[in-house]
Design a protein around this nucleic acid. Structure first.
Lengths: 312, 312
DNA sequence: TACTTTTGATTGGAAAAAGCTATAGCCCTG
DNA sequence: CAGGGCTATAGCTTTTTCCAATCAAAAGTA
């Protein structure tokens, strides 16, 4: 007959994490706002209910055992998730607050978000953004899996249960080696591309499809021998003379404009070749109003960049 | 002065999920082994502490609100994770039990795991495997992120904090259209490949690198125009005459051997061109002994396939 | 309309869990 | 070997959770 095992509680997990951080029962208790014996008892209860020794007691600072560290690692995830639930109250209500887990395309986030967070922090001080980058196709899957609350990505996206807020169109310009013949022109067009070699990102990126389609249209040759894994890699490949590529306006603005000597950037088709950017979330998240508000903030920020065409 | 908000508890989340499933307070209470008033109170407390209405009370069956569904969705993840912690006791101790989240390469898992799970279920009845497939590079990242406990993937892998159990070497054979001239030969070698077009998977797969290197060595042309997203896709591309490719032995065994008419498969270099397969886990997971045991089971299963060379 | 049934909310008191203070026991250090 | 710092244990108090009984509202039925 097994002795009835007390169930796992969030409290116990919190205490374990505090213990791991402080390596000290008394300090951990203090940081939790309880007395040291209370914490001792909870840790002991947790160990009993798991049937594991989590803490090496003895001389010196408290050390978690291997098992303890693994439990603590998972406990962090769990507590983050509970925090997410508690933040929902704020997010769902209407106001923009709590922690939003924002997934962003690696070709966009690093060049846009730094400008947004400043504005955002001023207008919504109690909002925290947890930002993570990935390729658009991964993002979309991860959004469905609940890994993100919201993703910032290239449109269009498919999915009946998704909501979209369009943000802006971002022109794609041609990047070419400084010594390339076409660098002499101020503006490039379809005809200029025929027979050129175009470099692209991996197919996980929506950008890849767009560039690929353009190559068909213009008769350019899409190189598959080297697929860039980031815009920086792509730009370096261009600098080495491996081909031309398309770079989005925000990347150009932030990483190239005015200082790069290795590559030059030229507008293409009068900047009418562009990609569309938007926020996407699960309709069922119920936080639509909050995300719409966030979209508005981002659009405001985007107005500072003359080449972006605001939408929505 | 805000009234002190009672903290979120796992119990409340459990009750909410039961309520969503049964759509009925009394039944939910019953399924939780408590009385209906207790459940009512806990749900109410949860709503108060979140500041949200989670349940539409009234006529007809109980419905969760939008917010309620979102909370329940997250609650499920949280409870799964706590279950994971509780299973650790079993997994870590030594025995093979509980739930192991196994990530597996999409080029391997579907062809190996079906054979393993039978043996495994017999020898370790209380072990549950939660299997998820992805490309090796994603797997490795996800392992670090704690999404998997263990991954089954092509070696080598890098990472100081990872432990590896080598399982076996799996020969890679050449697949070619039935009408291809080389199909006349029983066995192919480096020389046969020169000037041939070779198809490969996307670079997220370790297999890509290996095939790519072989192309350099043999003077074959690696086609980047069409990258397969699965072995099945690759095989169909071969059948359509777009080129040759390499297929791992277990895939051949399970999907082609003896019945396919569209492609033929030939050993390459006397089957000494192969990829190495192993289990990988976070050293800090502390479940090394259990995973080693799992490795042993897989090696036993692998012995049934004469072409595999068992390692470890 | 009045009576029953069904369903979730409320109440009051018992049981369980979690907390605190005080103190015991251990291992270092001086 | 005394003293200081550490965690564990004991005994008691407070808070939380639960149940049984009861209430109130809605819906069906005679």
């Amino acid at each position: 007959m097994p002795v009835s095992v007390p169930p796992l509680t969030l409290r116990q997990l919190r205490y374990l994490i505090a213990l791991e951080e402080t390596q000290h029962f008394r300090e951990a208790a203090e940081s939790c706002g309880i007395s040291q014996p209370s914490l001792s008892v909870q840790i002991k209860t947790l160990e009993d209910s798991l049937g594991l020794t989590l803490v090496e007691r003895g001389r010196g600072p408290v050390r978690l055992t291997l098992a303890g560290r693994e439990v603590a690692r998972r406990a962090r995830d769990i507590l983050d998730a509970t925090q997410g639930i508690m933040d929902l109250s704020v997010t769902l209500q209407s106001g923009l607050g709590g922690t939003i887990r924002l997934g962003t395309s690696a070709t966009l986030g690093p060049y846009l978000m730094p400008h947004v967070v400043g504005d955002l922090h001023r207008s919504h001080p109690d909002l925290r953004l947890y930002i993570r980058e990935a390729a658009p196709r991964d993002l979309l899957r991860e959004l469905g899996d609940g890994m993100h609350d919201l993703i910032l990505t290239q449109l269009p996206v498919s999915g009946a249960t998704l909501s979209v807020a369009r943000l802006f169109r971002e022109p794609l310009s041609v990047a070419l080696p400084a010594e390339h013949p076409l660098a002499a022109k101020d503006m490039l067009d379809n005809d200029d591309l025929s027979e050129q070699t175009i470099l692209s990102l991996s197919p996980s990126y929506t950008l890849h499809d767009q560039i690929s389609a353009l190559c068909v249209e213009t008769g350019a040759h899409l190189s598959r021998d080297y697929e860039g894994t980031s815009l920086d890699a792509l730009r370096q490949m261009v600098a080495m003379g491996m081909g031309l590529t398309f770079l989005p306006a925000l990347y150009v603005e932030s990483e190239i404009a005015g200082r790069a000597r290795d590559v030059v950037v030229r507008p293409f088709r009068g900047r009418r070749f562009s990609r569309s950017i938007g926020l996407v979330w699960r309709e069922a998240s119920g936080a639509g109003p909050a995300y719409e508000r966030l979209a508005t903030v981002i659009r405001e920020t985007a107005k500072r960049f003359p080449h972006l065409v605001i939408e929505g």
